[in-house]
Design a protein around this nucleic acid. Structure first.
Length: 346
DNA sequence: AATCCGGGGCT
DNA sequence: AGCCCAGGATT
C-alpha cells in the first residue's frame, strides 16, 4: 500500500506531459502502446502524431493500404507491428463495428496485443486492475525488492508478473501502471540513476546493498551474425530503377529494396562482376558496373550486422518493371535503403 | 524454452 | 566495435 502511494505521489509531481496522457480513447491508447513497444518515447512520439493525423479513427486505418501504413511506420522498426495494427484495425471495424473491446481477455485476442499491451489498454481506458510489466517495471521491481531471477527467463516473467499484480493500486490502476513505468523511465533509469533524490532510497534493496548496476539480472543475448548484402542500384537511361518487395519470412517483410544478392563474404569489383553474369534481373542486359561505397556500410540490427555494398548498374536498355526516380519515395523501405536514397540524391 | 524481429544511444 | 535497451509471434 505504501509502495503505490509513494509512487503515485512521485508521478503526480514528475510525470511528463505526453499526448497520449490527454485521452482515454482506446484507439489512441492502443496506437501509442503498440508504437512504444521496444521503443523510447522520444523516438515514438513523432510517429504517434503522424498516425493520428493520417488516420484519426480506426475506420481510417482500416481503409488504408498496407503499403501506406508501412510507409508511415518507416524507420521505426519491428515492422510486424505496422502490419498487425492494420490487420487489427480491419478486424475491429468488421467484428466490433469499430468499437474496441473493453476488457483484458478480449483485448489479448487482438493480433499484436500481448500481455503487456492488453494490461495497459484495459487499465488505462477501462480501469481494470491488470498490472503492466514492461522493461521499466522489471527494473524497478528487481531493484527495489532485490529480485535476482533473470527477467528474460520463463521463471522471471511469471515471478515479476505475480509481484506486479500484488502491488497494483486497485483504486486507480490507470495512474498506478503509468506511474511505475514513468518512474522506471525517468528516475530508476538503466544507467546512472540519481538515487539521492529517489523517494524510495531508504527502503530500496539495490540502493542499500549497492546493487544498482547488477539489477535487473538478464540472460545475455547471442552475438549478432554477420551478413553480406549487395544491392543492385539499376539506373536506366529513362531515369528508372527497380525496387523489389521483400516476401516471405525474415527481416523487413513487405518493405521494398533494390534487387539484393547476398554473399558469404565481402565482394570486390571483379568477384562481384562474375557473380552478376548469371543473375535474373540483369539477364540479357548490357550494363556497366561500379561500386558506390568502397567500405561496406555496417547496418546493425539486434541479431545481425549487415555489411552492405551498393553497386551502381548503368544501362541504356529500358526496364520492363522499372519505376521512375520520383516514384521511389512512395515505397516503404528499410532505413538502410532510405539512407542510401537520400545520399544518392535520386 | 529458444529464437526472430529494428533501430537508437552510449562508451 | 561492443554493449544496453526489450514485447509479441513463431517454432
Amino acid at each position: 500500500m505504501i509502495f503505490s502511494k509513494t509512487l503515485n505521489r512521485w508521478y503526480s509531481i514528475n510525470k511528463r506531459e505526453l499526448p497520449w496522457r490527454q485521452t482515454k480513447n482506446p484507439y489512441s491508447i492502443w496506437l501509442s502502446e503498440i508504437i512504444l513497444q521496444q521503443t523510447q518515447v522520444k523516438q515514438g512520439l513523432p510517429y504517434y502524431e503522424a498516425f493520428l493525423v493520417n488516420f484519426p479513427t480506426v475506420f481510417d486505418l482500416a481503409r488504408a493500404e498496407e503499403q501506406d501504413v508501412l510507409k508511415l511506420w518507416q524507420g521505426l522498426g519491428y515492422y510486424s507491428r505496422a502490419r498487425n495494427i492494420h490487420l487489427t484495425a480491419k478486424y475491429i471495424v468488421n467484428q466490433y463495428d469499430g468499437v474496441f473491446p473493453n476488457n483484458y481477455t478480449a483485448l489479448l485476442k487482438l493480433k499484436g496485443v500481448g500481455d503487456y499491451t492488453a494490461s495497459a489498454i484495459a487499465s488505462i481506458c477501462f480501469n481494470e486492475p491488470k498490472a503492466v510489466v514492461d522493461g521499466n517495471v522489471y527494473r524497478v521491481l528487481s531493484r527495489y525488492f532485490g529480485v535476482e531471477t533473470p527477467i528474460n527467463s520463463s521463471k522471471g516473467i511469471k515471478e515479476f508478473k505475480t509481484l506486479a499484480q500484488e502491488l497494483i493500486d486497485h483504486e486507480n490502476p490507470a495512474d498506478y501502471n503509468q506511474a511505475i513505468m514513468e518512474f522506471g523511465a525517468v528516475q530508476c533509469k538503466p544507467q546512472n540513476p540519481d538515487c539521492s533524490v529517489c523517494p524510495f532510497n531508504t527502503t530500496c534493496f539495490a540502493f542499500n546493498k549497492n546493487q544498482i548496476q547488477q539489477l535487473p539480472v538478464k540472460i545475455k543475448a547471442e552475438k549478432a551474425k554477420k551478413k553480406y548484402f549487395n544491392f543492385l542500384v539499376i539506373i536506366s537511361k529513362e531515369e528508372q530503377t527497380i525496387l523489389k518487395k521483400r516476401e516471405g519470412k525474415g527481416i523487413w517483410q513487405n518493405l521494398y529494396q533494390f534487387p539484393l544478392i547476398e554473399t558469404s563474404k565481402s565482394m570486390n569489383q571483379d568477384e562481384f562482376h562474375s557473380i552478376l553474369k548469371n543473375h535474373d534481373v540483369l539477364k540479357g542486359l548490357n550494363y556497366e558496373l561500379s561500386l558506390y561505397n568502397e567500405t561496406a556500410i555496417i547496418h546493425k540490427l539486434s541479431h545481425q550486422h549487415l555489411y552492405t555494398k551498393f553497386w551502381i548498374v548503368t544501362t541504356h536498355a529500358s526496364l520492363t518493371e522499372g519505376i521512375t526516380f520520383l516514384e521511389i519515395h512512395k515505397y516503404p523501405v528499410p532505413l538502410l535503403i532510405e539512407n542510401f536514397i537520400k545520399d544518392f540524391n535520386f
